[in-house]
């Protein structure tokens, strides 16, 4: 089973994404900020990161910049934000995101992009 790491400080959002992903056969792990995300991402392998931007301790950009500098298998990363500003998108891509999604995303939309990023077409 593929493993997804959800990094978000909002517990309901983590639960929401967890429900959608688990229903479709993914294993989900959670972290409450970028620092904890970094610890978990370094501890074991994931097939996808779903990362919020604004978080305490270490934000989403910081998480991606640091994890992309590590010598590990690099999974794709989806950045999720309330901002649709072009500038934020630019920073996200520069930090190492593969996709920038404006929230709140519909379940079908989220799932489509998750599958797309992991190369799953029929899970």
């Amino acid at each position: 089973m593929k493993r997804v790491l959800i990094i978000d400080d909002a517990s309901t959002i983590r639960l929401y994404k967890r429900c959608i992903l688990e229903k479709h056969g993914y294993l989900v792990e959670e972290a409450v900020n970028g620092m904890e995300g970094l610890e978990k991402a370094l501890e074991s392998h994931f097939d996808l990161y779903i990362v919020d931007i604004n978080m305490p301790k270490l934000d989403g950009y910081g998480f991606l910049q640091r994890i992309r500098a590590e010598d590990i298998d690099q999974p794709p990363a989806m950045m999720v934000s309330t901002e649709s500003a072009a500038q934020d998108k630019e920073i996200a891509y520069q930090s190492g995101a593969n996709l920038y999604l404006v929230k709140p995303a519909k379940p079908a939309e989220l799932l489509t992009f998750v599958r797309l990023l992991m190369g799953d077409h029929h899970s």
Binding site: V32, N33, M35, E36, E39, L42, K57, L58, R66, E70
Partner: peptide, 14 residues
């Protein structure tokens, strides 16, 4: 214990 929940001053090393 996780420094990630305490302070961002340190870098995580694996």
């Amino acid at each position: 214990e996780s420094m990630g929940r305490i302070s961002p001053l340190f870098t995580v090393r694996k």
